[in-house]
Amino acid sequence: MKKLFFICLSFLLASSLSAGNFPFGSSVAQVVKLVKDVSVKKSSEAKIENAKIGTVISDGGQVITKSKSLALIKLTKDNSLLTVRENSILNIYERKDAKGINTITNIEKGTLNFKVQKQEVGDGFQFITPSAVASIRGTSGTIDSDTSETEILLEEGEMFVESKNDPSKNATLDGGKKLTIDSEGNIKIEDLNEEDQKKLNDSKKTNTRKIKIITPFGELEFEYLSD
């Protein structure tokens, strides 16, 4: 019964996303900090533009980060924090109904660190990557995704993960564990090792460096994400 439910849900989500037919709504998220080269699409129908601190993202909006760049996004519904690391593309959708607010973040590629507040009754939060659909109620960690594989490092809380292509392949991930899932739906769960922990910690960092070049025509200043 549960599996059937998730199959139906995934189907609905997948079909909705592919059709891009989420209704345009109110603000879903806001850029609270950015480094270097970040662009946004404020909604599904908007054009891509440079992001600024305070830029508001509505349903269907998109955040794109280039090399050595990052963006900190806060969800307006509950103050959850998403850190979009360099070379990433994130789409944000929101469904509101009488029961609550469901947030869906589609990580097309790249790395996303998240600290999601405990969801209210009726609310939901999902991550979708090319290979997985993950549901949480309040947790923190990092998702690293490309077209063939998704790696999830979960710091705390609990996450239900299923294959995007075959929802019958699923698992529940606990805090302190790592999950990898490929496009075939093969799932592997391990304890976080030292390297994973470092990767997790690094994904939270927002340190930047600045280079100032003085030219006869004026000063040029570059800010970029440090290693």
Partner: peptide, 11 residues
């Protein structure tokens, strides 16, 4: 130059 005051009334 990075000050942001932001209040959400979504709920």
């Amino acid at each position: 130059n990075e000050l942001l005051i932001s209040i959400s009334f979504v709920r």
